[in-house]
Simulated scan of single mutants.
Amino acid sequence: MDPRTKNSVKNVFFSELSYAATLILQFANRSFFIRFLPEEYLSLNGLFSNILSFLSIDFMGFGFAVYFDK
């Protein structure tokens, strides 16, 4: 197997492993909020998570526009 194929297979494996770990940690986080904290904290957690993801997507587009303009 040539090095590019080998590196691609490793990349796919670790990408899937990272996705699975993120999914499990999100589930554990949500379960913790549901079992031990009131509903208000759960909704605030969701709100701030959505705001942060929106800002990261927005900033990513802005960074590309600045890079493209130079």
Rank of each mutant, 00 (worst) to 15 (best):
T22D: 11
S31W: 06
G63W: 05
L47C: 03
F36N: 10
G61K: 06
F36C: 13
P38L: 04
L37Y: 05
G61M: 05
E39L: 12
A28V: 07
N7C: 03
M60R: 11
L37S: 04
S18F: 11
N7T: 03
S56H: 06
A20Q: 15
F54D: 01
S43K: 09
T5P: 00
E39C: 09
F62T: 07
S31H: 07
K10H: 10
F14W: 06
K10Q: 08
F36L: 11
L42V: 02
S53N: 08
M1Q: 01
F48M: 01
F13I: 08
R35Y: 05
F33R: 01
E40L: 11
Y41K: 09
F48P: 00
Y41V: 06
F64T: 11
E39Q: 12
N50L: 12
S15D: 07
A21T: 12
N11S: 14
L47E: 04
E16L: 14
L25F: 11
I24Q: 06
V66P: 01
V9R: 02
D2E: 04
N7G: 00
L37I: 07
E39S: 15
L52G: 03
F59Y: 09
K6G: 00
Q26D: 12
F36R: 14
I57S: 07
R30P: 02
F36Q: 13
F62M: 10
F36E: 08
E16A: 15
L23W: 13
D69L: 14
E16S: 14
E39G: 10
S15V: 01
F27W: 14
K10M: 08
S53M: 07
I51E: 02
S43L: 12
N11W: 05
F33W: 04
F27A: 15
F14M: 02
S43G: 05
R4K: 12
G46H: 04
S31N: 13
F14T: 03
V12P: 00
L25C: 14
L17D: 03
E39R: 11
I57V: 09
F64C: 05
K10C: 09
G61P: 01
S18P: 01
V12C: 05
I34E: 14
L37G: 02
I34F: 13
R30F: 14
F36S: 12
L52Y: 04
I24M: 09
D2N: 05
M60H: 10
T5C: 03
L25R: 13
S53L: 15
K10A: 08
L55A: 05
N7L: 12
N11D: 09
S53F: 07
F27S: 13
L52M: 09
N7S: 06
R35G: 04
S15Q: 09
V9S: 02
S43M: 10
N7E: 08
M1P: 01
N29V: 11
S18W: 03
A21Q: 10
V9P: 01
N7P: 00
G46F: 05
T5I: 06
I24K: 09
